[in-house]
Structures are given as structure tokens and as C-alpha cells.
Design a protein around this nucleic acid. Structure first.
Length: 316
DNA sequence: CGGCTTTGACCAGCGC
DNA sequence: GCGCTGGTCAAAGCCG
């Protein structure tokens, strides 16, 4: 899947150590600066001194936060690499988990064979993010066995349809209201090729109803429909929008082994790993997710704007 | 008429 | 063993 991520941190948090302050300033921070009522030509020097002090403090805080984020990224990647290494070294472990009682295991294993047969690169398979995925052993097992990826689609909150425009042709075979989410979960099978066993679950995010979470199980054993027949428009659902980059530009995330299960309500701690198919670097997307959560905090935004304006003052 | 969605029923895994 | 829950099936209805 060659999608571009929809993640937009809205605030250009200085999360990239390589990025200079000048670059950050280019990205519209001036607005925040002026919205705070800070002016270069402030008449009251005392208050400006206090402000400068405050700005220094916030700058230091900003620096500290940046360092913490960087450290978190490093820890995350280390942990993930360790996990991957462990899984490679101990395939029997994987097998033990996989052979736990799972109904229709033959079906799943066959679909898994399809995955390997079609696409040998299964390295980035294990995946999930914060909330629902893999919080039960059964789901964990599914994550390990089949190629599971989770894609987030930004949609209109008022849009109640669980249609995800990913370009493939899906046939809906069920819908269920799950316990942990009031919005129904829709079940889809790939109907483009009869032999394709890819399944998809689509459900609104608990945290953000404007976000639709699509969980893909398996991998298509056929090319993307838009590559095969660009004009093929049959079907009423997904094929109507065979261009994946249209309304919803998803971000594929993969299993986060460092995450404890049962933390679905903690949107601020979303750990994500971008699928290797994506052009984005893994730490970058992780950091952007963190930044996204942080930027929801009004206080943090104010402090951040103050810190940046401090940098501006410094330069002037 | 074919293909799709809807939706209630059914099945199987899991926890108690 | 029983109840809960998620996942799947399949009949009925809808739509182009």
C-alpha cells in the first residue's frame, strides 16, 4: 500500500532534532506568536522581562520534552528490534502461540500460506497500535500468524458509513456491535479475486469518531484493482473510489510489541510503527503521533508558542 | 437478474 | 459447564 499518511500534527512541534528553529518558524508559527499578544515593541519593560523569563523557562521545558520524546523513540525502537530478533531466534515460541485453540485454524493457516506465497516479505507483519488490537491472546495470535495491519482513515464524524476507500473491492459479510466500542464493526472480505482471503474489519475509533480504523488481515494475492483495471467501477462500495489517495489518506501502522494491552482510552500514548511500505521513517511517525496528542493540550500549545516566540525574540 | 447489504442466528474461544 | 463475546453464515431484501 503506497498511501501517504494523513497524520497532521497541526503544530510544527520541534520533534526532529535535525530540524532547525528557523525551519519551524517558516511554518506559520508567527501566528501563534502574535495570537499570544506578544509584540516586539512592548512598552512595558518589566512585563517583558517577566515574559522573557517565562519564555526561557518554557524553552527549557520544550527542550526537555523534545529530549524525552527522542528517548522514547529510541527505547521503542530498541524494544521492537529486540522483539523481532527474539521472534526470529525462537520460531517455536511463535508456533506455540499460533497453535493455541483457534477456530477454523485451517482456514487461517491457508490464508497465511497465501501471504507467504505471494509476498515473501513478511518481516514487517506484526503490528498493531494502542487500543483494541491484540489485547487478547487470540488476537495476538492472529496478529502474529496473519499479516495484520491497521489503517486509520480520517473521515467526517457525521459520516456513519463504514466505507473505507482503499481502492480494493470488498464484500461486506457481517456487522457487529462490540463491547468496547459503541459504533458497529463491519466485516469485509476481498471480493476482487475469489481466491483472495484478505479480510477487513472497519470500525470507528472510540477516541475519535472522525477516525475510522480498518484492520486488514492477510495480504491480497492479486494486484491493486486500480493497477489492473483503472476503469473498473463495478460494485457499489469501495470500487467507487479506486484512487486510494483521494478523500482518505491512511496511515498503516503495525504491531507495537512494547505496548501493554488494555490501554485503549489512552489516546495520548499511541505508539505506532509505520508500515515499511510507507515512505516515512518509523521514529518520525511515532514522534508525530505523540506530538499530535500533545498538541491537543491547550496549555502545551500555549507553552510551545511561547517557546517559539522566545526563539524569535532571541534572533531579533 | 446478479451482486451487494442487512441482520438475526449460529458457532467457537475464553474466562469465571 | 455456562455465559459472554467476537466472528461468520445465510436468508431476505435492495439496487442498478
Amino acid at each position: 500500500m503506497d498511501y501517504s499518511p494523513w497524520i497532521n500534527t497541526s503544530l510544527d512541534l520541534n520533534i526532529n532534532p535535525q530540524r532547525s528553529h528557523q525551519e519551524a518558524l517558516k511554518n506559520g508559527m508567527e501566528n501563534n506568536f502574535f495570537s499570544l499578544g506578544l509584540r516586539n515593541s512592548s512598552p512595558k519593560e518589566e512585563s517583558s522581562d517577566a515574559l522573557v523569563e517565562e519564555l526561557k523557562r518554557v524553552s527549557a521545558e520544550n527542550k526537555k520534552l523534545t529530549g524525552m520524546l527522542t528517548e522514547m523513540c529510541e527505547n521503542y525502537n530498541t524494544l521492537r528490534n529486540n522483539m523481532m530478533e527474539y521472534m526470529k531466534k525462537n520460531p517455536e515460541t511463535k508456533e506455540v502461540i499460533s497453535f493455541s485453540k483457534k477456530r477454523k485454524s485451517d482456514e487461517i493457516s491457508s490464508s497465511n500460506n497465501n501471504l507467504i506465497g505471494v509476498n515473501g516479505s513478511n518481516s514487517e507483519s506484526s503490528s498493531s497500535d494502542e487500543d483494541q488490537s491484540c489485547k487478547k491472546p487470540r488476537e495476538l495470535e492472529t496478529c502474529i500468524k496473519a499479516k495484520v495491519s491497521r489503517v486509520y482513515f480520517k473521515t467526517e464524524a457525521s459520516d456513519s458509513s463504514l466505507i473505507v476507500k482503499d481502492g480494493y473491492q470488498w464484500r461486506k459479510y457481517g456487522q457487529k456491535v462490540t463491547r468496547d466500542n459503541p459504533s458497529p464493526r463491519a466485516y469485509f472480505k476481498c471480493s476482487f479475486a475469489p481466491s483472495c482471503t484478505v479480510k477487513k474489519k472497519v470500525q470507528r475509533s472510540v477516541d475519535d469518531p472522525s477516525v475510522t480504523v480498518a484492520t486488514y488481515e492477510g495480504e491480497h494475492n492479486h494486484p491493486h484493482p486500480s493497477q489492473m483495471e483503472p476503469t473498473n467501477n463495478r460494485g457499489r462500495n469501495q470500487m467507487n473510489s479506486a484512487a486510494p489517495s483521494s478523500a482518505a489518506a491512511p496511515c498503516t501502522v503495525t504491531l507495537d510489541w512494547t505496548k501493554k494491552p488494555k490501554c485503549r482510552n489512552d489516546s495520548s500514548s499511541k505508539n505506532m510503527v509505520i508500515n515499511s511500505n510507507s515512505k516515512m521513517e518509523i521514529p518520525q511517525i511515532l514522534v508525530e503521533q505523540m506530538a499530535n496528542s500533545l498538541t491537543k493540550d491547550v496549555k502545551f500549545r500555549a507553552a510551545l508558542a511561547a517557546a517559539i516566540s522566545g526563539q524569535m525574540l532571541h534572533q531579533n
